[in-house]
Design a protein around this nucleic acid. Structure first.
Lengths: 225, 225
DNA sequence: ATTAAAACATGACAAATATCATATTTTAAA
DNA sequence: TTTAAAATATGATATTTGTCATGTTTTAAT
């Protein structure tokens, strides 16, 4: 079985600040889990017994709103942690985690995180900085949601997906999302997302090949109103 | 001069987890600052040299969006900390803090926070839990912004203000905000906020006396669509 | 290869919200 | 107290976004 060091050496998350012994313990007791596209990793209201670390693939954190819509809060790629916050605040998770494509996760039991958190200053400060960064991001998203048009938000997500998850050799976004996924991220109706993406195609800001999307004009996409 | 213990004894924030010596040091070096309604406590892009703790009054954290609108991210009352995140992540603040009424703040220099953060496990874990809570709150606000109508958000803010800052002997909200303030919080146009609040009056969900607002029917206000 | 289901597309219309204009009221300063 | 400025109110209208209906295309299973 592969060791945590492989992930950690890439400096992917705060676990890099664990001591060698702590890391070995994590590595020894972690389990690897596989999920298929669309699978639920955990569901709102569940009590998590540990933290998941994305080894391969992409997951989303979502919440079902009162009117039955799914709102996606965050996309998580390689090296990012799922369930961190629930473990820290010792509460049930208020979000669901769903696989956006076939995904491989490492599961690390709660104790292996909590103990270093209470004993290893470097680690806990690092986690603190991570949470601070997440908080800044969430506030930024809130402001965008309040101040930008749906069209601007769709453009922004396309740009984000290109930057965060990259493109293949032909320039298509590596992360393939449905129009419905996009709608849930920007907080709009599926039809609106479809219409906007169609318009982007007509305006040659993007091109598509089936479900694949390629950004053709990043500059103009950034200037969408 | 008053001591920190007075604030801390009310268990208002993570500073309660400082050791006696740490707390004494904070208490000794802190300074008290006064701001008048509308004053800028700090501005976007500033580099903060410490953390502010609200002793009396209410402040808001806001960001100026590209289209020139102010978006209010959070209201902060007694015992809450301003600038915490910028100090932790050692970045310039991306938000402005503005006094919503006459306000008294304690200013604690950076070092007095950073040092305990790196040495006192109990304190740093407590701050961690606070940030986790803030993050959950920010995600909740994001979802509300995406999924609820402007009317629902206005109703929600009124309820929040009553709960968080209380009412006077006649039942009027202690925190007096302008319609424009409400608009900035819910992310809408001032006229829309005015219209919605007027409608709430007509529907007897609230009543007003000048700028003062009293919630008359909390149940119905919660059920606004 | 065939076919059913899912995803995508698009028109027509409705609803929510923004914008602009113009009064009226309230607040705070002189 | 008077008065100018700010805040609130409201109508008319434009724009954005959502909803419903109905096709078409794509995907994936048989």
């Amino acid at each position: 079985m592969s060791k945590c060091e492989h992930c950690i050496s890439r400096q992917l998350n705060s676990m890099k600040s664990l001591t060698k012994e702590e890391l070995k313990r994590v590595s020894d007791c972690k389990t690897t889990k596989f999920y298929k596209k669309g699978d639920i990793i955990f569901d709102e209201g569940e009590s998590l017994s540990g933290v998941f670390c994305v080894r391969h693939g992409v997951a989303k954190l979502t919440k079902l709103s009162a009117n039955g819509n799914d709102q996606t809060v965050k996309l998580l790629g390689k090296g990012e942690l799922l369930g961190q916050r629930s473990i820290i605040s010792d509460e049930r998770t208020n979000l669901s985690a769903i696989a956006l494509n076939d995904i491989e996760l490492c599961f690390v039991p709660k104790d292996q995180i909590i103990e270093p958190l209470q004993k290893n200053q470097v680690f806990s400060f690092d986690v603190l900085q991570n949470l601070a960064k997440d908080l800044r991001g969430a506030e930024g998203d809130l402001i965008d949601m309040a101040q930008k048009s749906v069209k601007q938000r769709v453009a922004q997500v396309l740009i984000y997906v290109e930057k965060e998850f990259g493109v293949d050799e032909k320039g298509y976004l590596n992360l393939v999302l449905s129009r419905d996924d996009y709608a849930n991220i920007v907080g709009t109706a599926t039809e609106s997302a479809i219409r906007i993406i169609s318009q982007f195609k007509k305006d040659h800001l993007i091109s598509t090949q089936g479900k694949q999307i390629k950004i053709e004009n990043l500059q103009k996409l950034k200037l969408v109103e």
